[in-house]
Amino acid sequence: MNDSASGWILVGALAIALPAFATWLWAGRARQAEQLHAETRRRLEQLQREFERFAPPDLVERLTEGRGDVAPQRRQVTMLFADLRGFTSLCDRLDPALTVAILNDYFRHMSGAIGQHHGHITELVGDGLLALFGAMETNPWQCRDAVLAALDMRKALVAYNEQLKAKSLQPLQFGIGIHSGEVIVGVMGAGELNKFTVTGDPVNVASRVEGLTRELGVDLLVTEEIRKTLDAGFRLRPMPPARVKGKREPIQTYHVESNDA
């Protein structure tokens, strides 16, 4: 075989080998990219699941998808404040681990009742909680949902108290205040601590109404704004108008006794 023929064979071999090599290289890179993408998605999903322990799943989804609809906005929202009575003094007498276990179980029961009625808990402070209805999206039944959630919370507390009683532990008592109004919703905070929450006068009113439950000796109070939206199936008892901090006029509240529907 002469040199010229060898050269042509070499060129031919290269002409086949080089594209094959390039294709092999490209396929390898593509495979790597796919693997990298799959791994990134797996981590993102894990992060999302972890994050959902701290914020409503809908909000987490919006944040992870980079959608702009978590920007602060004014919205009609119904706020439900619930606070345990006498729990602080109970804490002083109980083992810390038992105290936390009781509190966690209590929150789990309450969270179930709230979630069942389209609400979500946005804050847990000590033994108190703030649940929002209609904060994530328009909810025309938000007042009704909040009251039904509160009635289910009442039932859930009775059931949980049975468990506590079986363990010779003191039963829990709570007070719930519900109010509705236009508030600002959004992700608020500073530095590394941010949360999705609400701010505005109606939030303060809801909190004060929860405070009134202690004063008026009932477990569940709603304001006139809530009462106006409820149908006759809800049995309400008007309470004497009461003064609350930050309001010039006394506010009218109603004790929710039951729902016959």
Partner: peptide, 8 residues
Amino acid sequence: EKSLASLE
């Protein structure tokens, strides 16, 4: 309106 508000 009442039916829609009360879902009944």
